[in-house]
């Protein structure tokens, strides 16, 4: 049956898998294998194919191994991918506050890259709080250069809660903070942070699917499950209503969320097509226009 959804963009995605009027800019992707799960998207060509089929025109990403393993080797992998397809990919430099030697040369290392637009922080993965002193040099640098900083966030976390994003957004007002996963489970607080801080944004990865940790035999890398994690339908509408569509960006955690699944959650949210365009590409384009990629 034909959907009653009046969106022309949704009709495009259903008919073709993409919309010329609504390209997707992916602000939260990953690359490389992951120790804890089989991911079919490797090799590289499969990933590019998946992006192309959904109309992804730019993908901001970091290597998973940079977050969960050797940060230097992982960041080097990111650089190789950016060098291979600089039109499609832009890099996040992963920051690991548990690695003092890496932190000491952070600015110099970052300035030697090509095609990077900011930092990726995973406080819960490194069990170090976002508002702790070891992150300060990276955030001071990002503030001075108006970088994009993508932060893994989770409701109730001791390391990267939306409340902690509010703290650092106040300290470093020129950083464009993307709240990865929108403070999953504590969506109301994340929305309030996005509303009150000019450069804080809700990034939608994970928001497309409920999380029931009872279904994950080995648990989750993110240890907290709030009751609100069991349902996500309607959250995008809530975000648009309370933070506006200007404060939300598209991301899929590629390959963790299929671009079509993610796009479907936006196309079949009860919002208008202008809001969909804001979320899918306009806001990210504005952020990219604000930052100067390295070595350009």
């Amino acid at each position: 049956m034909k959907p009653s959804n009046p969106s022309l963009l949704a009709a495009d995605f259903l008919a073709k898998g993409y919309s010329d009027d609504c390209p997707l800019i992916e602000t939260h992707a990953h690359y490389g294998p992951y120790q804890g799960a089989y991911l079919p998207v490797e090799p590289h060509e499969n990933r590019v194919h998946a992006f192309q089929r959904a109309g992804v025109t730019k993908a901001l990403f970091s290597a998973q191994s940079a977050i969960l393993g050797d940060v230097d080797a992982g960041n080097a992998m990111t650089q190789k991918v950016v060098d291979r397809e600089p039109e499609l990919f832009a890099g996040y430099w992963v920051v690991n506050p548990r690695n003092a030697e890496h932190m000491a040369r952070l600015a110099g290392d970052y300035e030697n890259t090509h095609g990077f637009v900011g930092f990726k922080l995973g406080p819960a993965y490194h069990t170090y709080p976002l508002d702790g002193p070891a992150y300060a040099p990276a955030l001071e640098y990002a503030d001075a250069h108006k970088l994009i900083v993508l932060v893994h966030t989770w409701g109730g976390s001791a390391f990267d809660s939306p409340q902690q994003v509010a703290t650092v957004a106040g300290r470093y007002p020129q950083v464009a903070f993307l709240m990865g996963h929108s403070g999953f489970g504590d969506f109301e607080t994340a929305v309030a942070v996005a509303r009150h801080h000019e450069h804080a944004y809700l990034e939608l990865t994970c928001v497309y699917a409920a999380h029931d940790f009872a279904m994950l035999p080995a648990g989750s890398s993110t240890p907290i499950q709030l009751a609100s994690s069991l349902h996500v339908n309607g959250i995008i509408e809530y975000m648009v209503e309370h933070a506006t569509s200007k404060k939300i960006v598209f991301g899929t955690d590629m390959p963790w969320y299929s671009p079509h699944f993610a796009a479907g959650a936006i196309m079949y949210a009860r919002i208008d097509d202008e809001a969909r365009k804001d979320i899918c590409h306009r806001n990210a384009r504005r952020l990219l226009d604000r930052v100067t990629p390295t070595d350009t």
């Binding site: 349902h231 479907g264 079949y268």
Partner: peptide, 11 residues
């Protein structure tokens, strides 16, 4: 309604 039905449909 745990998830958006349109997401699964489009996928």
């Amino acid at each position: 309604p745990d998830n958006c039905a349109g997401a699964a449909m489009l996928r």
